[in-house]
Design a protein around this nucleic acid. Structure first.
Length: 772
RNA sequence: UGGGGCGUGGUCCAAUGGCAGGACGCGGGACUUUGGAUCCUUGCGGUGUAGGUUCGAAUCCUACCGCCCCAGCCA
């Protein structure tokens, strides 16, 4: 199975544009995990994105271990990562890289940076560096070591490499921009001393590159074209570019950021996952409750389901919180097709079939798949005089709409006879211990609504069943509204072990790592590690959708959150009122301080402009000057202001309008032509686009490009007719009452006229034609 | 607070000036020896707010509001 056609997303659009423009002629992506933990579902999103792009664009995706910090990284993780990516179904071929493969090149680039006067060795301590960095509002102070000579820096850096200094003694920093509003650019660290043994390079190095320095170089050295990472690295993109712009790298990759995955009732930070493992809150990285690939695999999730989940949720830049129900949907969709059905009883009640011939066993051939799955296969279910049914399927006093067993009521044993409950045995506490039922086969059976699952008592196989549930009791454990620590929010019932469930003999010797559906209960997976012949262990992957549970839950009172601990008070309830100055306030203050500006503003208002527009025009002197000059040439204040505010300012972007090649004379002429109807508004904007990029004379541009507005019904009529003829369905729908379609037709006609048609006239023509 | 980013039904994602659409969910229905399989559904529900431009705005302009990220010798 593969996705029909990949969903559009902003990264695909960028790639399409890059391929189109010739910026790149092939696509190279990479998945760059740091081997300091196991991969989780969030990584799966990134893996599917990067490898999926390579697959769809016939490019390549590299698997790269970002091993620049030997203190936290480990060979175990490297192997686990490779296993997980391969299991997810992606191949990297010979494109397996490690950041450490490039340590020598990175070092050489660093010496180049020093020789170019763009990096220096800093002897400030870690704390001092922090203090010198300033704050978001105040610029950094230069380190006293910032202006060392090239020779001294080179000697020092070589001494660092040679191991002449202890850890933390000094670092290599780039000479960035100390006043940059982006903190990341204030002399970022490039290298630090770490006398630690590296999983791959051993003790060859005692200096290691920082992420911000290593990552762009790795990308460039591997000729990656599109370097895709998560949103929190947006601020780092400036250094990424700085490094590439200031080193002589063989390629120029670009970084793009997308929103990382968030899901409820779990945590996805490596630090927290590691803590769960280290403090034994779970049984290792592959505990089936963990959101790790290894955990999900052991639980019974399939690679196909995880991949279709990643396709389903899409890729965008908005922070989002995905409902885990979507993963479960993908899982059920996949498991439904691949899991043979079998029956299991988790909490047995013995049922005696009254009158069943002693010792008689009937062999029932039960299909392994329902009809719609369309797979062949049966298994034999032997039926004797005693069976087990699930306690859940019997009610002493049945609620309304109960379709299962209850005293005096009848139900079908799935694939078998209908039984009617004649008597109930209970112990001293009232607990039901045994049911006696009469049974009816073939045509003698009464019509019943329900069918329940069962296991033959004489042939039942004892099994251990592990009922997994969400790891945490609350949706957002690491952002608890009540302020509770995330570790106190673990779900105490995340793993309920049923030691003596009964399963059909057909799965008594099930192979480890096999999917089955326990009918009416859920999808299960024979545990790959603990299953033994004759002693199966099943993990519940996911329950079946359950409309009865939903129905009864709707009736039941709302269940309180399971963690009853007293919530911590919300600190700082009386948060300081925002003292932030808005743009409007800033301008008002500027006017208060500058009478000339205030007079200008007042003048504009007197001209009939709105206070807002006057405010905008007065934001920069150049803007106001342009308005004045244009207005002098064409005294229509509202029109001139509209064009400046809506279009000229937008074209200028962050810059001043005076930087544009547009003159007041040209603007005045353009506005006059639009007002006169010589060109349509739309075409006028086209003219303006040319004016702000190249300058020129509006009239000449209109003539050259043939933009003069067409009002002539005889010219327009054939286009109208052609458009209507080309879209008979739309015409029918319009006539059936879908008036919104008029815009669709108008757009089509205007477009076909090359933007020259007078839209009002087109509309009138269209309406007349459609009425006919 | 300086800077960077993001706001489309309950959730996730499309629509790149021209019919606001898909999926999950919820509701309704069909069928049934899985109440839970399967199928149908023209059912529910949305462009953060306020102005403006335009024949036409989710999309362009202006202002406001809200959320996320950045001051590790982590990545």
């Amino acid at each position: 199975m593969s996705t029909p056609e990949p969903k559009s997303n902003f990264i695909r659009q960028i790639i399409d544009a890059d391929l189109e423009s010739g910026r790149h002629d092939r696509v190279v992506t990479r998945f760059p995990p740091e081997p300091n933990g196991y991969l989780h579902i969030g990584h799966a999103k990134s893996i599917c994105l990067n490898f999926g792009l390579a697959r769809d664009y016939r490019g390549t995706c590299h698997l790269r271990m970002d091993d620049t910090n030997p203190e936290t990284e480990d060979e175990e993780y490297i192997e686990a990562i490779k296993h997980d990516v391969a299991w997810l179904g992606f191949q990297w071929g010979d494109k397996l890289f490690h950041a450490s493969d490039f340590f020598e090149e990175m070092y050489a680039f660093a010496e180049d940076l020093i020789r170019d006067g763009k990096a220096y060795v800093d002897h400030l301590t870690a704390e001092e560096i922090g203090a010198y960095r300033g704050t978001v509002r105040e610029p950094a102070r230069p380190s006293p070591y910032r202006d060392r000579s090239v020779d001294e820096n080179l000697a020092l850096f070589r001494a660092m490499r040679a191991g002449e200094f202890p850890d933390g003694h000094c670092v290599l920093r780039a000479k960035g921009d100390l006043a940059s509003p982006n903190m990341k650019l204030r002399d970022p660290l490039l290298y630090r001393i770490r006398k630690a043994s590296h999983p791959r390079t051993g003790d060859t190095w005692c200096i290691y590159p920082m992420y911000d320095y290593a990552h762009p170089l790795e990308d460039a050295l591997e000729h990656v074209t599109h370097s895709i990472c998560t949103l929190e690295f947006e601020n780092n993109r400036d250094i990424y570019d700085w490094v590439l712009d200031n080193t002589r790298v063989p390629a120029r990759p670009h970084q793009y950021e997308f929103a990382r995955l968030n899901v409820g009732f779990t945590v996805l930070s490596k630090r927290k996952l590691l803590q769960l493992v280290n403090e034994k809150h779970v049984h290792g990285w592959d505990d089936p409750r963990m959101p790790t690939i290894a955990g999900m695999r052991r639980r019974g999730y399939t690679a196909e389901a995880i991949r279709s989940f990643c396709d389903l949720i899409g890729v965008a830049k908005a922070n989002s919180f995905v409902d885990i129900g979507k993963l479960e949907f993908c899982l059920r969709e996949d498991l439904n097709r691949r899991s043979p059905r079998v029956m299991a009883v988790l909490d047995p009640i013995e049922v005696e079939l009254v009158g069943w011939p002693e010792g008689h066993v009937e062999s029932i051939d039960a299909p392994s798949y329902p009809d719609d799955v369309g797979l062949p296969g049966t298994r034999v279910v032997p039926l004797g005089g005693r069976v087990y049914i699930d306690r859940e399927d019997f009610a002493l006093t049945p609620p309304k709409k109960w379709k299962r067993l209850s005293p005096g009521a009848a139900v079908r044993l799935r694939y078998g006879p209908v039984i009617r409950c004649d008597s109930v045995e209970q112990d001293a506490t009232g607990r039901v211990t045994k049911l006696r039922c009469s049974y009816f086969q073939g045509d003698a059976a009464p019509r019943v609504d329900g069918a329940i699952h069962w296991v033959p008592a004489h042939a039942a196989v004892r099994a251990e069943v592990r009922l997994y549930d969400r790891l945490f009791a609350v949706e957002k454990p690491d952002a608890d509204p009540a302020g509770r620590d995330w570790l106190t929010l673990l779900n105490p019932e995340s793993c309920v072990v049923v030691k003596d469930a009964f399963v059909e003999p057909a799965v008594g010797d099930i192979a480890p790592g096999t999917h089955v559906q326990f009918e009416r209960t859920g999808y299960f997976f024979s545990d790959p590690k603990d299953t033994r012949a004759g002693a199966p262990v099943f993990n519940r992957v996911v329950t079946l959708r359950d409309s009865w549970a939903r129905m009864s839950a709707a009736d039941a009172p709302v269940v309180e959150p399971p963690v009853a601990e007293a919530p911590a008070p919300l600190a700082a309830a009386s948060a300081p009122k925002s003292t932030r100055k808005t743009r409007q306030q800033a301008r008002a203050e500027a006017r208060a301080a500058d009478p000339a500006l205030a007079a200008r503003h007042a003048g504009y208002v007197a001209l009939g402009l709105s206070a807002d527009d006057a405010d905008t025009l007065c934001d920069a002197a150049a803007t106001a000057d342009l308005f004045d000059a244009t207005h002098a040439l064409y005294p229509q204040p509202a029109a001139v202001s509209r064009w400046i505010v809506n279009d000229v300012l937008a074209a200028a972007g962050e810059g001043e309008v005076s930087a544009l090649p547009l003159t007041a004379a040209a603007l005045a002429a353009l506005v006059r032509l639009v007002d006169a109807g010589t060109v349509s508004n739309l075409a006028g904007k086209e003219v303006l686009t040319e004016l702000v990029s190249k300058g020129g004379d509006p009239e000449a541009i209109i003539e050259r490009r043939g933009l003069r507005q067409v009002n002539d019904a005889d010219t327009l009529q054939p286009i109208v007719a052609a458009v209507l003829e080309a879209h008979p369905d739309h015409v029918a729908r319009y006539r059936a009452g879908n008036a919104g379609l008029l815009g669709f037709f108008t757009g089509a006609v205007v477009r076909q006229s090359g933007g020259k048609a007078n839209p009002q006239q087109v509309k009138a023509l269209l309406e007349a034609a459609l009425k006919a």
